[in-house]
Design a protein around this nucleic acid. Structure first.
Lengths: 147, 147
DNA sequence: CCGGGGTGCTAGCAGTTGCAAGCACACTGC
DNA sequence: GCAGTGTGCTTGCAACTGCTAGCACCCCGG
């Protein structure tokens, strides 16, 4: 059994337990890396899976989406990070909602939400709301707020 | 009265009427230009109005949003077009929803919508759905589809 | 063999994005 | 006067985005 021996073994039986723990830590790290890698590649892999599910070639989707096929290839492989506009075009080409791609890309939350500006809307400013919207705890002209 | 005379006057009274019509056309074109210009500057002007409504300086918002203040200035003046990520950060700084800025920037629709991929979801592929998802009216290997 | 169609990817490049360094100006206190 | 703080903006630059031209490969028909 290839037990890792990167530290001094404390005893005959302890070395096996340490090796087992190290092995578990390695698995956890590996899973974390997989999760991080998945997040980075999520949108690209998702686009590819949608495209393949629709049985469409990369070039066909690129054309119907109005993006270049090399760029779509790079996006799918996670080499580039497309803008929202490109995602919108790809969604149109895939005939899915742009929001679905936004969510996968991490620029939109999953839950539908009314896009309302709050709480410091300029239309509803009143003296009491103004004090609520104060940004500096100190006086407006005070504080070391050099940019 | 400075009537525009870019065409031959047909008669003594017709010249005035032509000039009046040209003046009206000019106004319509001017309004259209204003609408186009407004659309381009919409997100920048909107961010500025929100910021001023909250009585926050450009630098204060830039810092709380985590973007550079020159860049925020450029965005407000319509000189640059920020990415969705930057819009997200600005929304956070303004304490408004990112969706509100996405809508103003034209990358999200006004109406809340569930981000569901449809109709060619790979999970729901079935023979009938597959034929519905066909992308080429001709046979898959036919057609001039050179990219 | 050839040419024609298809496929996905590589490489180089122009334009864009977002930043840091710095400027000019205003205001305040000594 | 000075120095210190604040304001918004200009400029130059590195990194990034999205593209075009081209490559290698596959399959098919003459």
């Amino acid at each position: 059994m290839s037990a890792p021996n990167d530290r001094e073994p404390r005893g005959d039986g302890t070395a096996e337990r340490v090796g087992h723990a190290v092995e578990q830590v390695g698995q956890v790290v590996e899973q974390a890396g997989y999760a991080v890698g998945q997040a980075v590649d999520d949108i690209g892999a998702y686009i590819r899976s949608q495209r393949e599910g629709a049985q469409v070639s990369l070039r066909q989707l690129a054309r119907s989406a109005g993006v270049s096929n090399p760029y779509l290839s790079q996006i799918e492989r996670g080499l580039r990070k497309p803008s929202a506009e490109i995602l919108q075009q790809i969604a149109k080409g895939l005939r899915i909602s742009a929001e679905a791609l936004y969510v996968k890309a991490g620029i939109l939350d999953e839950k539908p939400r009314a896009p309302s500006p709050m709480p410091c809307s300029p239309i509803r400013i009143s003296p009491s709301a103004r004090s609520r919207c104060s940004w500096t705890s100190t006086s407006p002209s005070g504080g070391r707020t050099t940019a």
